[in-house]
Every structure is written in structure tokens, then in C-alpha cells.
Write a protein that binds this DNA or RNA. Structure first.
Lengths: 194, 194
DNA sequence: CCTACCGATCGGTAGG
DNA sequence: CCTACCGATCGGTAGG
């Protein structure tokens, strides 16, 4: 079996790299750590990726795009923008905290990339943000939130992504409860009883 | 002049280290970077600090404690909890974005420390959080926010600290405007016209 | 994808 | 605080 025709190993490397980059940070993770995590020898990751940076770039972009697929599937057919936001928040926290793809968190490692790679990652992050922006604009249009400007969206992502710094799965707080609290943060108090 | 009796150099090292750790991350910053930033040779920082980790720990703790001093000075004599929160937010964003002490951001580098150092840093962060917790509890007591539980506070710090990932001083958004938007996020819409 | 390896860098130290 | 240095580690490569 020719090694280059085995796409599973590439994906395994990507998953292991994403997990380690989130846990330890890009600079503190060695390519040997990543190799060991998938049962390879020290030099072998470089058969699949030209450099450590390319591993990071691929993990970020493929993680964001696969997270976006989940986002779009979750809100498919949801008309009410308030429900839509709650679903986006819950799914995003799933991307961040539950699956082994914690790539939304990796954007903060962009500084390790050069300008060209950073631009590619920024494009993937824009794609990921698109459904959020649409929902926030709908919420602003019906007066449910006061503004959908950039500060609102960026503050929101900071709040959501920051969760992976302190949230521990299996603790007193469930992801569902966390999603509820986070959505309430964005939406403010309920305007009417439900 | 004996080198050990010059406390200014120690402070210079701490400031340079804090700035570099925030910009590039702890692992990506070399002790040579720090030495160069204050005009020292490669080995000299180790005259002041036993290890790179100790530099990080000291930068975090002294940064948090000096930020706390500013926090307490800013809210001194402020009785209204809503105004108090706005002042805390504005001062915190100043600690984070304006002065060269951006230490509130450094808590996310705690993972580079061992358990004992991490506990010391956690204690400093608890001190920093105390006035926030008191203010949030007052706001909850008068019904201005719905809850002052841990998720609220942690979500809020995530939102605030995340700003240093995207906010650029001198851009279209001023720190005052950012503080306004962030405080509005925590407080929700105004209950009455002002 | 492994073996074997290299050049560079890095945290830290001895001695003054 | 500098000079001079060391051992370890790390990203990456050659050749198969």
C-alpha cells in the first residue's frame, strides 16, 4: 500500500495537530508530539505537510470549514432569528468544546503564519462568520438587539471562544447550560415571557 | 553601581517580557528577545530571574496587582453599581489595550507554568476579580442583570480579554467606544431613557 | 513512511 | 551584568 494514497493518515495528523495546538499552543507543540500522537516517527509528518506552519494552516481551514458545515446544517430551515442565534451558539460551542475539532479556537494562532497563509485563514473565518452576521442583522432589523456592527460580533466571538480557556466538560455546567447563558448574554433579557 | 541594587532593570525586564509574551506568546518568545528588548546580553535576564517561567509568573502577578490598583482607584467613591461596572470595564480595557501592562491577557499562558506557580497566579487573578464579583452581585440584587453566577463573570472576562486579539488602537473604534459597547453587552439594553 | 542525520536555536550556567 | 559556553531539543531533509 503506497503511503501517499492513504488520506486517512493526513486527517489523523490534522486532528492530532488541532488538539495539541489548542491544548499546548502552536509554538509549544513539537512536530514530534504530533507524530507520536498518531504513531509515526519524528520525520514522517513532513511526508504529508511541507512544514509545521502548513499543518497549522490546514488544521485551521479544514476545521473552520467542517465546523461551518455543521453550523449550516443546524440552522437549516430555522426561520426565527432568535432561535437561529441560539442554535448557532450551541453548535459553535459544540465545535469548540465537544468534538475533537476545536478549530474555532485556533484563529488566535494566526500570528504564527506568514501574511499569505494568514489571508487564507481569514477567508475561511469570514465564511464561518457569514451566517452569524446574517442572523445578527435580522435581529437588529426587528429591534431584538440594538446593533449588528462589528464590535458586537467580535465581542461575541471573544466571549464564545474564551470558553475553551475555562470550561471543563463533565463539570457542574453542561454545554447546553453554557450555550443558554451565552445566548442570553447576546440577546439580553427576554422581552416577553415564554 | 552594583547591578543587583538596580530595581529598575528588573521592572524593565518585566515590562518587556509582558509585552512580548502577549504579542508572540510565551513559547514563541525567547529569553534572548527579552534581553535584547532592554539592551542586555543573552544570559543576563537570568541574573534577575531564575527561569523563563519565573519571568512569566512575575509578569503576570505584578501586572494583575498593578492593574487591580488602577481598578480600585477608578471605582473609589462610586456608589451606583451600573456606573461602577462601566468604570471597571473601561479601566480593564485600559489595562489590556493602552498601557504596556497587558497582563490581564497573560492568564491564558498559565498552562506554561507548573502547579505551584499556577496557584499563585490564580490567587492574583482572584484578587483582580473581587471588585467585579461585588459589582455584579449588586447589579443582580437590584435586578439590573439576571444573574451574577460564575458563567456570567467568566463569559464577560472572555469577551473583554478577547479584545486584545482584534482591537487595534488608532483604528475606527476608540477604547471609549469599545468600553461602551462591552458594558452594554453585559448590562443589556437600557431599562430607562437617560 | 522509516532511518539517520544536520544545522540552528534555545534555556540556562560558570566565572568573573 | 558580560563573556563564553554547553547540552538538549527542534524543524526539516536525504535516501530508500
Amino acid at each position: 500500500m503506497e503511503p501517499g494514497l492513504e488520506p486517512n493518515r493526513r486527517r489523523e495528523l490534522l486532528r492530532a495537530a488541532a488538539r495539541l495546538f489548542v491544548e499546548k499552543g502552536f509554538a509549544a507543540t513539537t512536530t514530534r508530539d504530533i507524530a507520536e500522537a498518531v504513531g509515526m516517527r519524528a520525520g514522517s509528518p513532513f511526508y504529508h505537510f511541507r512544514s509545521k506552519q502548513e499543518l497549522l494552516k490546514a488544521a485551521m481551514i479544514e476545521g473552520l470549514d467542517s465546523g461551518l458545515v455543521r453550523l449550516l446544517a443546524a440552522v437549516d430551515g430555522v426561520a426565527d432569528p432568535e432561535i437561529c442565534l441560539r442554535v448557532l451558539v450551541r453548535t459553535h460551542l459544540g465545535n469548540l468544546l465537544e468534538d475533537d475539532c476545536r478549530s474555532p479556537m485556533l484563529i488566535y494562532e494566526s500570528r504564527a503564519l506568514d501574511a499569505a497563509d494568514r489571508a487564507e485563514v481569514a477567508a475561511a473565518f469570514d465564511r464561518y462568520q457569514a451566517p452569524w452576521q446574517a442572523t445578527l442583522e435580522q435581529l437588529a432589523a426587528i429591534g431584538r438587539i440594538d446593533s449588528a456592527g462589528p464590535p458586537k460580533r467580535l465581542l461575541m466571538f471573544g466571549m464564545l471562544n474564551g470558553c475553551s480557556h475555562w470550561f471543563r466538560p463533565g463539570g457542574a455546567l453542561s454545554v447546553d447550560e453554557l450555550a443558554e447563558a451565552a445566548a442570553a448574554f447576546v440577546l439580553g433579557p427576554q422581552p416577553s415571557a415564554q
